[in-house]
Every structure is written in structure tokens, then in C-alpha cells.
Design a protein around this nucleic acid. Sequence first.
DNA 1: ACGCTGACATTGT
DNA 2: AACAATGCCAGCG
Length: 119
Amino acid sequence: MTTSPTPPDAVTRILAAIRAVPAGQVAGYGHIAARAGLPGRARLVARVLREHHAPSLPWHRIVRSDGAIAIPRTSPGFDEQVRRLRREGVVVTNGRVRMPAAETPDTLDAVLWGPAARR
DNA sequence: ACGCTGACATTGT
DNA sequence: AACAATGCCAGCG
């Protein structure tokens, strides 16, 4: 299998994907990576976010796939992210946000085996 | 080149 | 929910 080289404009596309997230909504790192045409490059998205914390960039809308804030609570950025999210109407409890319905779709298993089968 | 580390994801306990 | 094991890839020493 040929290696999938990281395109030179990967960062640009990642930034575009982040900016595409509407206010009041959150997206996971993998989601952003996939949207940027870089499936499986979630860690690259994390690196980009750490470097490019520009004011125009809605960095606070990016959380982990399980809805948890990706930065340690002891970090100063943590509180600010929570503030920014709440300002947009996002419910944040204990460093964790409720993932939007689109991000937590019912799987076929859930339909067949019942809600109890959901993770 | 080698091993670690990291604002991650997925799967299985 | 929490932890461990893998996979992933870019920097750094």
C-alpha cells in the first residue's frame, strides 16, 4: 500500500475545517481531520491547534470525541475554553460537553439491541 | 536513525 | 466513567 504523504497545504485545510464549525456547536479532532481530507490525522489537528491559537480561529469548539475538553484542567486555556463555549450556549459540565446529536448517531446495534447496547 | 511525547481515536476490558 | 493497548504522525534531543 502506498504511503499517504501529508499534503503541503494540510495545515491550511485543517484551519479551514475548524473555521467551518458553526458557533454553538463542537466537533471532534478526528472529525476535523476527516473534513480536511486527512483521515486518521487527529493528532496533527491537535498540533495545529496548539500553534495557531489565532483570535479568528474558533479553537474552543474543538473537543475530544468523547466530548471532554482536550486541555488539562490545570491549564489556563481550559477555563477560557469553557467560558467561550458557554457563551455560545454549549452545556459544559465537569470539563465535558454534550456531543451534538449528529456526533452521536444511534448505531444499528442500538436499534436492534436497544438503547442499553449503546456505548 | 531511535525513542519520547503529545489540545487524539478506536476497541476492548 | 476509567484504564490499557494500538495506531497514528510531527517535533525534538
